[in-house]
Design a protein around this nucleic acid. Structure first.
Lengths: 353, 353
DNA sequence: TTGTATGCGTTATCAG
DNA sequence: CTGATAACGCATACAA
């Protein structure tokens, strides 16, 4: 005998068998009633009610592991983050996203499971950590540096996975992302509409899709050709974007500057400091725009022209994509649009002297 | 026949049995080797290597659902909020809490399930919503107005539940809370140490434990008796705490004012406005303290004397309490201490004229 | 030291 | 319409 009641850790958790006993039916019947009777078997309305009552009485809730093991569904959706499930540094961006995820999941009758990638803050996720998500019917994946091999295994085995953020490398991996191209394009058009003819983009020196997409939108928004020097890549905005640099660009005829939003907000910060250091101010002497939202510490003043990333909408879109996958449907549009923000830092270029 | 290979969606995933066949051993041995051999059974180093090699060869990864089913526990901890799982209004306080919850849970090998009490803002939770938490091994409950009857059912059934916030009414319900009494006491002592002899507490007019605890600590920190009029309860601080009111108190010899932190920060806001409206300033003309943290919109200037609520620590403590319950251990200290914050709004009382 | 037999809770099949 | 019964993949007393 294998410890009938001895080593039972799942104390108190009522099972279908107990519901069956209380209702005076078989466990199969309970499964049938509670499972929505997919087989279309006709059941006595009376039996149905007795089972339902017994289940409520006992507080029965199906065991997700058993449900899943039996090749059925859980109504559980996972969220897996490669850093920590709750990054502390970026809460202003992460929290709204989760709000969207949560609401959309709830609206569709799913509960959310948060899988923690790296428990002790160490970057590398534990070997088997990724596989835990299989407990859920499907899972969202967040983070820049994903363990491609682990994820590949999952998608190759047909596990429903959606990456948050554009991701073309891993073929077959579904994703949702922000339409940085269109949003950045719109910002540039706005500046040109104001009369600006030469605009410079300051971006950090990495190859994240979020960065390259912004640059692409920026470039396609520029009117003329010869925009080769319109983009400045710098790994250290604070020391490269100086008042002197700013003056030099102005002397060349540049009238507007666009910064990319990054985790740290370094580019925008540097731009503001340079303008300040040069004794200039926007939008009188030049125009400024930010491709995203400003860092929290300089959120209010001045409100940058640019766009807001609809993080909650992104979360909702991710869930929609995932549930579409689960339903075997073809996924809809993976890109969510940004809201243009006029702000107070952009205006017509100063009249030429 | 029960669909041996027909409707099998789980293609390709190697199981222990296949690893066993390849290694020329039994499935049990595979489980033993791969499971870390908790039983301390001695295995041939040779066998071990063969199994490991076979597992790697096949790319074997354990199925989390099966693992949890066999272990009779699913390693899931729930978080249930009676407002919304992700309250948008109080994210500054909710997020850090979740950070603590997440880290502590991860450190103990648990994943988190987020339950939505009232998803679409409607106050009343759906009838069965509470019962769903049984899906997790245990659950945290947040929120002021909990459906006592539903919760009672759960705890009476022996379901491991921990309420976040002091809660004595429902006997048998474990809880963790912030030690507002000690923290408030410390603030008052600090003020008295600075020389203040008459101090007034402004609090809102409700009976939340968080409020009454603060008042208790405040009162016990006061030196003399006759502190009856030292506490002002108001349902509408904005219209009660006026410059005139302030002047009257000062005339009575009061030199320091303490506000309670609330969701809206109304008391602190009103106090600041009154001081401003009276043309006074802290800490020169009077001293101010806040029993908690200021609302986000006036976070920085001035930094109030008072204390910071260690929300992450609270979350961690809640998880520790819950896992202690799960282990059948006796729970440890339910109160987490606050960090005193000197701030810039309290100083010695002005010299008597 | 390794293999056999069982059970975990659910779903699904098939015979009463 | 209902009740046995067999998987699902893994872990574990117990036998060999």
């Amino acid at each position: 005998m294998t410890g009938k009641g001895a080593s039972r850790a799942r104390r108190g958790r009522p099972r279908q068998a107990e519901v069956a006993r209380l209702a005076g039916v078989s466990q199969t019947t309970v499964s049938l009633v509670l499972g929505g009777n997919k087989q279309g078997i006709t059941l006595h309305e009376d039996t149905r009610r007795r089972v339902l009552a017994a289940a409520r009485e006992l507080g029965y809730v199906p065991d997700p592991a058993a449900r899943r093991l039996a090749a059925a569904r859980n109504n559980l959706l996972g969220v897996f983050s490669f850093t920590a499930t709750f990054p502390t540094a970026v809460e202003h961006s992460y929290y709204p996203f989760l709000v969207g995820v949560e609401q959309e999941a709830a609206a569709r009758g799913y509960d959310l499971v948060l899988f923690t990638g790296s428990s002790s803050g160490s970057q590398a996720a534990a070997p088997g950590a990724l596989e835990r998500v299989r407990l859920a019917d499907g899972c969202l994946f967040l983070g820049r540096h994903l363990p491609a091999d682990g994820l590949r295994r999952l998608v190759e085995h047909g596990y429903p996975a959606v990456h948050v953020g554009r991701h073309e490398e891993l073929a077959g991996l579904a994703w949702v992302g922000v339409d940085y191209v269109a949003a950045s394009f719109e910002v540039v058009r706005h500046l040109e509409g104001l009369g600006h003819r030469r605009v410079v983009l300051v971006r950090e020196d990495d190859e994240a899709p979020a960065s390259t997409d912004r640059e692409r939108g920026f470039r396609s928004g520029l009117a003329g050709p010869g925009a080769g020097d319109a983009v400045v890549r710098t790994a250290d905005p604070a020391s490269d974007i100086t008042p002197g640099w700013l003056r030099a660009r102005l002397a060349e005829g540049v009238t507007a500057f666009v910064a990319e939003e990054t985790d740290t907000g370094a580019a925008w910060r540097a731009l503001l400091a340079a303008v300040d250091g040069a004794g200039l101010s926007a939008p009188d002497d030049l125009s400024l725009a930010l491709l995203g939202s400003p860092p929290a510490d300089l959120a209010a003043r001045p409100e940058p022209a640019g766009f807001d990333i609809p993080r909650a909408a992104l979360g909702a879109a991710a869930i929609r994509m995932l549930t579409a996958l689960l339903a075997g449907e073809t996924a809809d549009e993976p890109l969510v649009a940004c809201a243009f923000r006029p702000g107070t830092t952009a205006g017509p270029p100063p009249a030429a002297p």
